[in-house]
Design a binder for these strands. Structure first.
Lengths: 342, 342
DNA sequence: CCCTTGTGGAACTTTTTTCGTCCCACTGGC
DNA sequence: GCCAGTGGGACGAAAAAAGTTCCACAAGGG
């Protein structure tokens, strides 16, 4: 199979671009359907006319359907899209990239989505889709009861959106308390949504951000509800978490100028589940809250990290080095940038 | 692999044409090198300008090299060409065709070369090449001594041209005596050439065409040389033979009008090793000469039939039905036409 | 030794295709 | 009943592809 791809790259290299272009269109429509020509062209950064030529073709091929509401992907198109993602990955040598990351970062499995989150919103959704598939596979894996811990963030939200399962014995919990500015991206919210789509149970952890250490301790010691949830969280066998840029996450948490300056001075570039780490994988700061810590990750059966976008490359690398990851789902832009830093 | 091809056919169908066009060019140059733009365009039926665009590309890709003598295929191009033939075969669904013929005609193996002998001389050469590869594989197959019987014809000549081996224990013989107008395409000549390129021994059979049965018998009975050769021929374990259209072969052998009319009346359409058969596989006429007969084919370990071109489809089918074939090497045009007749 | 033939490279024109742009009739939600 | 957004259509500009012709040169044959 790889042989065929190399063969084609040699003798019909122009094919790659065309195929990827059509793949991108199909993928975008798949997420935004129904959508019109002009809006679609805008999102993909193509001129209307060029896009039109392609969608006309895709229509003729029976992959897209047109209505007065806009374009949508046909069933056949969706089948094709699924197969195509693997193929595009190989075509762009992402398989090799994945292998490289697996070996150099000691991760069990790396999945790279073609594209760049920073430039195409749809890529983040695709990361979510891929993560959703992986999660469902893990849950379907025989064992009766699972405890799934999730962090917050838009990528996690994208995953939750793409999950659909029937796992009444599974419990979904937030990995840590608090954190998150928008309600829809808080870990608690995501746990709820995910549990809903999984038909699973869920528990929430109500511990606000920025409480002092003493108050936190007293809550943990005295509140039996919180205590129970924390115990469940600590028993999680699957963790799905996002990774963020240290500075952006710190701002989002409303860190004071002083603390922020310290953070930067300590070289913090990445953040995951409330811990900040530098590019060498050293944890330099931990937010004051309850739930999982980086050290706990080793005990968890499957740790799944999600993040994409060239801007997050450093952050991703720092978190991976600081923790134990079983599965990483990222995008092409981040992956290529990470490789440069190795 | 087949999946990938279907995928591509669906989403980038224009690829096929382009790839096949470049493949044809590469293949043609490979046989005719060094050759110029204009001559090449003529052979391929392309305009000079179109061909130029392609060869310029192939040059940039490092697959073709240019000199003042003309174009030639680079080593890399030859490697690619070898891999490509399998790929093109699958791309054009020739694998399915091959399978269909294997099952319906009870042949061990069918190899179909893309194209049409009648329109492109190079396809015949490719049939020769493919047959040469197969023959070399058979000869390399452990066993010490082989006796290879060959018929005459341009296709066999093409095969002999493409053989290169070192088989000093092998003996090459003509399948039958006589027959053939041009010296270079007589079975005797081909046996000699083939033996030379194989570094093998050879024996010739000097029995002219159109001798009466009585004279033939007396030659066979009395001439110890002829007798010995015939015995070797009968012991052949590999036979490579061409197939021809009955009428054309009859004319070439100089059959009288009367006999010719009988032949046609009997429904003869195909000919191989001097026997004529009708479309249902019944042998209707046998030329008066020494060597292998259709009935002997069952005893031979590997019988390899070579023929291509739409015009020969009927002939090929008739011969296959009349005899026992282990391997058939033909071209796309003939194969597609044969399938229609099943 | 020259002459013919075929070579790759280049230039120019014509044709075809692609692309940018605007308009239109229509539909579904508000 | 408006209005934003839809697909479809049309037309000219721009670009790419293809047809045509020429040139300098090198090789091989008489």
């Amino acid at each position: 199979m790889d042989n065929i791809i190399n063969l084609q790259k040699k003798i019909v290299p122009e094919l790659s671009d065309l195929l990827v272009e059509r793949y991108r269109i199909l993928r975008q429509v798949s997420h935004d359907a129904p959508i019109g020509r002009r809006a679609l062209a805008g999102e993909l950064g193509l001129s209307e006319r060029v896009l039109r030529a392609q969608v006309d073709f895709l229509k003729t091929s029976g992959l897209l359907s047109f209505s007065s509401l806009g374009m949508a992907v046909t069933d056949e198109g969706n089948d094709l899209l699924r197969d195509l993602s693997d193929y595009v990955r190989k075509l762009q040598d992402l398989s090799k990239l994945e292998k490289l990351l697996v070996e150099n970062l000691h991760i069990g499995r790396v999945v790279i989505i073609p594209g760049d989150c920073d430039k195409e919103e749809v890529v983040k959704k695709e990361i979510g889709r891929a993560a959703a598939r992986i999660l469902l596979q893990l849950l379907a894996d025989g064992k009766k009861q699972h405890v799934v811990a999730v962090s917050g963030g838009t990528t996690l939200a994208a995953m939750a959106e793409n999950v659909r399962g029937n796992e009444p014995n599974t419990i979904v919990v937030p990995a840590r308390g608090g954190l998150g500015d928008k309600v829809e991206n808080k870990a608690n919210t995501i746990a709820t949504v995910l549990a809903g789509r999984l038909k699973a149970k869920y528990r929430q952890l109500y511990v606000p951000d920025s409480v002092s250490g003493e108050i936190l301790n007293s809550i943990l010691a005295e509140d039996p509800g919180v205590k129970a949830v924390v115990e469940i969280i600590k028993s999680a066998d699957i963790l799905v978490h996002g990774m963020g840029q240290a500075k952006i996450m710190a701002e989002r948490r409303g860190l004071e100028n002083k603390a922020m300056a310290d953070l930067i001075a300590d070289g913090a570039v990445g953040e995951a589940i409330g811990q900040y780490c530098d590019i060498n994988g050293k944890v330099v700061y931990v937010t004051n809250n309850a739930g999982l810590m980086m050290n706990d990750l080793k005990r968890i059966n499957k740790v799944i990290g999600l993040a994409g976008g060239k801007s997050k490359a450093q952050a991703i690398l720092s978190v991976i080095r600081a923790s134990h990851q079983d599965i990483l789902v990222t995008d092409e832009a981040a992956a290529r940038d990470i490789v440069k830093m190795l």
